[in-house]
Amino acid sequence: MREALFIKRNKEKWIKYETEPSTDPDEQSERFIALLDDLSYSKTFYPNSNVTKWINGIATETYKSIYEHRKQDFSRLRTFWTTELPLLFYKHRKLLYFTFFFFLLAIILGVLSSKTDQLFVRGILGNSYVSETENRIENGDPFGVYRSDDKFGMFLAIATNNIRVAFLAYISGLVFWMLFLSFSTLRVLMFNGVMIGAFEYMFFARDLGWQSILVIWIHGTLEIWSIVIAGMAGLVLGFGYVFPGTYSRLTSFRIAAKESVKIIVALVPFFILAAFLESYVTYQMSDTFSAAGVGLPVWLSILILAVSVLFIVFYFFYLPRKVFKKFNSYETGEKTLVVIKEYNEEIPA
Rank of each mutant, 00 (worst) to 15 (best):
I107Y: 02
E132R: 12
V121Q: 04
T116Y: 14
F103Y: 14
L168N: 11
K151C: 11
V130I: 02
V111G: 00
L112N: 04
I124E: 00
I137K: 01
F100P: 01
F100C: 07
N161W: 06
T133I: 10
Y146P: 05
G144T: 06
S128T: 10
Y170A: 00
Y129R: 10
L105M: 13
M154W: 12
G126D: 00
A169K: 04
Y97I: 11
R122H: 07
R147V: 15
E138M: 11
Y146F: 15
F155R: 06
V130P: 00
R93L: 03
L125H: 06
T116I: 07
I137V: 08
Y97A: 13
F167W: 09
A157T: 15
I163L: 06
T133P: 02
K115Q: 13
S131K: 10
K94R: 12
Y170R: 02
G123L: 00
I108A: 15
D149S: 13
V145D: 13
V121L: 01
I158E: 11
G110A: 02
L96E: 04
K115I: 12
G123D: 01
R122A: 08
F143R: 02
S128F: 04
S131P: 02
R122Y: 11
G144V: 03
G144P: 02
A169C: 15
L96Q: 06
T99E: 05
G173N: 11
R164D: 12
R147T: 11
A166V: 02
V145A: 14
N139Q: 14
V111D: 01
L109H: 05
A169D: 08
V145F: 14
T160I: 11
L109K: 08
K94G: 05
A157Y: 13
S128A: 12
M154P: 02
F103V: 06
F120S: 09
Y170S: 03
L109S: 12
S128W: 01
N162T: 03
F102E: 06
A157M: 15
F101I: 10
F152I: 15
I107S: 03
F98N: 05
A166W: 01
R136M: 12
T133R: 09
F101R: 08
K115V: 10
A159R: 02
F103I: 06
L125W: 05
F102P: 03
R147W: 09
L119I: 03
Y146T: 10
S131F: 07
L112R: 11
N127T: 12
Y146S: 14
F101V: 07
V145L: 14
Y146R: 08
F100V: 12
G153F: 08
A106N: 04
